[in-house]
Simulated scan of single mutants.
Amino acid sequence: MLPLVKREELEAEIEAGSVTVVDTMPVDYYEREHLPHAVNIPGFPYEAASRFTDELAPTVLPDLSTPIVVYCANVPCRNSELVGARLVELGYTNVRKYREGIEDWVSGGLPTEKSQVSRAD
């Protein structure tokens, strides 16, 4: 199980630029709304989470020691646990989880971003 981070702590770390936030929602959800400056490694469908992480992590997370926080929709969502666990298996040394996810972030009145993900489809 990954160490947990609370909203207030994550907000401060994002503002300080001291963390890389990983949105583990499917690409279309990420494009619609994500935490500020978040990168995307989809953790759904669950059976593809490890493959997506293996493919995308070297590009979006080149430093194995960078502080990382993974998140998904809410507490029941498993995406962030799957992606986070795989990051640890790949050798990332500072991975935490924002268990409450984007639903908690939005309910706290905090800003989100929208973006297009460039895909080589």
Rank of each mutant, 00 (worst) to 15 (best):
V22A: 01
V22P: 00
V22N: 02
V22C: 03
D23H: 05
M25E: 03
P26H: 01
P26D: 10
P26F: 01
P26M: 07
P26W: 02
V27F: 11
V27A: 10
V27H: 05
D28T: 11
D28Y: 15
D28V: 12
Y29Q: 12
Y29G: 03
Y29R: 11
Y29T: 03
Y30F: 15
Y30H: 13
E31Y: 04
E31M: 10
E31T: 03
E31S: 07
R32G: 07
E33V: 12
E33F: 12
L35C: 06
L35R: 05
P36T: 09
P36M: 11
P36Y: 03
H37V: 09
H37Y: 13
A38W: 02
A38P: 04
A38E: 01
A38I: 04
V39P: 00
V39Y: 02
V39K: 13
N40T: 00
I41N: 02
I41C: 10
P42K: 06
G43P: 13
G43Y: 09
G43A: 13
G43S: 14
F44E: 02
F44V: 08
P45Y: 12
P45I: 11
P45L: 10
P45E: 08
Y46L: 12
Y46N: 11
Y46P: 07
E47S: 10
E47T: 12
A49I: 11
A49C: 14
A49M: 12
A49L: 13
A49W: 02
S50H: 13
S50F: 10
R51L: 13
F52M: 10
T53L: 07
T53R: 05
T53Y: 07
D54K: 14
D54G: 03
D54P: 00
E55A: 14
E55P: 00
L56R: 13
L56W: 04
L56P: 01
A57C: 12
A57D: 11
A57N: 08
A57G: 09
P58T: 03
P58G: 06
P58A: 07
V60S: 14
V60Y: 15
L61M: 04
P62R: 08
D63E: 08
L64F: 11
S65K: 15
S65D: 15
T66K: 11
P67C: 09
P67W: 05
V70L: 10
V70W: 02
V70G: 05
V70K: 04
V70P: 02
V70M: 07
Y71F: 06
Y71L: 05
C72G: 08
C72N: 06
A73V: 07
A73L: 12
N74D: 12
N74H: 13
V75Y: 00
V75E: 04
V75T: 05
P76I: 07
P76C: 07
